[in-house]
Design a protein around this nucleic acid. Structure first.
Lengths: 341, 341
DNA sequence: TTGTATGCGTTATCAC
DNA sequence: GTGATAACGCATACAA
């Protein structure tokens, strides 16, 4: 560190060539005498030369970096990942793999406070060729501010899509329809209950709408949705309202389903014998319950990969109409719907 | 995208100030007339100006980015994380949180082929202020090449530590000792078996050494270690060699323990009634087995956080002696050792 | 408090 | 094939 950091100039001098030649040698460019190449590479080796990414980025006008900005809602004290984190991990992995194939690295940054998302997004965007905004980390202020470069909003609500902002979401409707279909056609349930999510969640809205539509389409009565906010607690609290007991209760997410199952167990009501319970999201815990939770799974890695694909596509041609991608969800049939474990 | 990207100059012109003032306004620097600041900020807003991170990095000589380089051993087809990936996710999260507090973002890159690790590491290093090399992604070639900037090797073998390369590892010895102690003092086991890991793994070596030392220290006979390579398969294959059946089998990692338990079950040998089985690592699956696997847990997030701390420390003062951090492991007592589930 | 001018390390455009 | 040189966008030392 005391010794000066070597630059292209040092390498050039040592190799007895010009900096231009060094640059060519390092970017495996076209015409270079093999001997020259060899000399440069050896000088690089001997000097322990590392290219300066900033300088490169400055001239080449691109960083070969794609950014991901998200909200960190996890418990900082816990080493165990909570569910939102597992979701993010999946997206990150999907992004990294897709980016790798295209020669990009992934820059990740998170904030706890949604209000800080804009600053973080700007900070990340300034160091990357494109950025993915995840869920609540995609306030409109950030979207507006960043849309000079490719932006993909994942699982968020993007009001302004007359711009060049692409979106990736999951097919909540398809998943919910499959779930209800399963309950009705496989198990013959006809009296369905519904435990809803917060009104300001696009996911919650789409799931409820799909539920209502599907149930109606099957000629069954649509229940009044029980209020919930996606927490285990409201799931638990919903139990008393379940009377008379329906054949099955569809919960807008897994956490509430789990809370409900707990409350049911406390009251001696058996799942799925007395009532079936199903969720949405496929969080880790659900797989390990007794009975294991039947639910709908989101394709985390494909979401990340799709975001990268959209980013790169727009990097090629900026003037594309905005894409709104819907990735398919998959029904995870387990025990809580009445299927054999 | 068609319109020219605004720079400090554009902002300066629009705000009627110099570029220096713009720069100061954006780096919330010391003395700036509030009115001037306001004007600049408004110009920034109106122009949708985003600072150019490359240019910044070039002059400031730092990127405010910390990199992580690792091997991606996961199954690209599977959406479910395999265990090595979960470990990495934990480290990433720990790094991100620690980095965030210090104003850094995390750049992640992975390769499948260890031979490609050097190139990736160089590529990442050139864009960051410091880099973490994870496990097998830390070949000596890379370490040597990169040590011009802060490098932390996590869970790797770093032969050359007469340099300025810090390391973070876990206390394999402490964990193993606690495990053996538990088996012996709580359960009274005296005839212990050992299923070892690959010879080229530092973890495997340390675990075996600690096992041997502890068993010897307790005055018990040291068994010949059964050969294994950390895969579930070799764990399974080791079962026939277990005769006469010892009181307990210590496996160098969880995967082998799980393979062994499967094989034992196939032979009608009950765990823990006939023989106790314990592992090391605390992978997710172990918690959900019947009986659940008693094992030793590594502190993933603290590992990531420690790596960042070391990086930043060395960023402050490069001429520090190399640190070799050992993070404590914790015994996870579950059913497979004979404790009540 | 604000402006001017220089240099950061690299790539790209020309020449040769 | 190779070399000189001009940007690239910003921060900062030095002036004012």
């Amino acid at each position: 560190m005391t010794d000066k950091i070597p630059t292209v100039h040092d390498v050039a001098r040592r190799a007895g060539v010009s900096t231009a030649t060094v640059s060519r040698a390092l970017s495996n460019s076209d015409k270079l005498h093999p001997v020259t190449l060899e000399r440069v590479l050896r000088a690089v080796e001997e000097l322990g030369y590392l290219p300066n990414g900033a300088a490169r980025g400055l001239t080449s006008r691109r960083t070969r970096v794609l950014a991901l900005c998200f909200l960190d809602l996890g418990d900082p004290e816990s080493d165990a990942g909570d569910d939102a984190m597992l979701y993010i991990d999946g997206v990150v992995r999907g992004m990294e793999r897709a980016a790798r194939e295209r020669g990009y690295a992934i820059l990740i940054g998170a904030v706890q406070d949604p209000d800080a998302a804009l600053d973080l997004a700007v900070s990340l965007a300034s160091r990357s060729d494109g950025i993915v905004l995840l869920g609540q980390a995609a306030p409109n202020s950030a979207i507006q501010r960043l849309k000079r470069l490719p932006v993909v909003v994942v699982a968020g609500r993007c009001d302004d899509d007359h711009g060049r902002v692409d979106q990736v979401r999951v097919d909540n409707a398809g998943g919910m329809t499959a779930l209800v279909d399963h309950l009705v056609s496989v198990h013959g349930h006809t009296r369905l209950g519904y435990l809803g999510g917060p009104a300001d969640s696009p996911d919650a809205t789409e799931r409820w709408e799909a539920f209502r539509r599907t149930v109606t389409g099957l000629g069954l009565p649509v229940p009044a949705p029980l209020p919930g906010d996606f927490t285990q607690h409201t799931g638990h609290a919903a139990a008393p309202a379940l009377s008379p007991l329906p054949d099955a209760v569809v919960c807008a997410n897994d956490q509430m389903a789990i809370g409900l199952m707990t409350a049911l167990a406390e009251r001696g009501i058996r799942v799925p014998a007395d009532v079936a319970v199903v969720g949405f999201d496929d969080i880790d815990l659900g797989r390990h319950l007794r009975p294991a939770l039947t639910t709908v799974r989101q394709p985390m890695q494909p979401i990340g990969a799709a975001a990268v694909t959209l980013l790169e596509r727009r990097l090629r041609s900026a003037q594309l109409p905005p894409t709104d991608l819907r990735l398919p969800t998959t029904l995870q049939v387990r025990g809580s719907c009445g299927c054999p474990a």
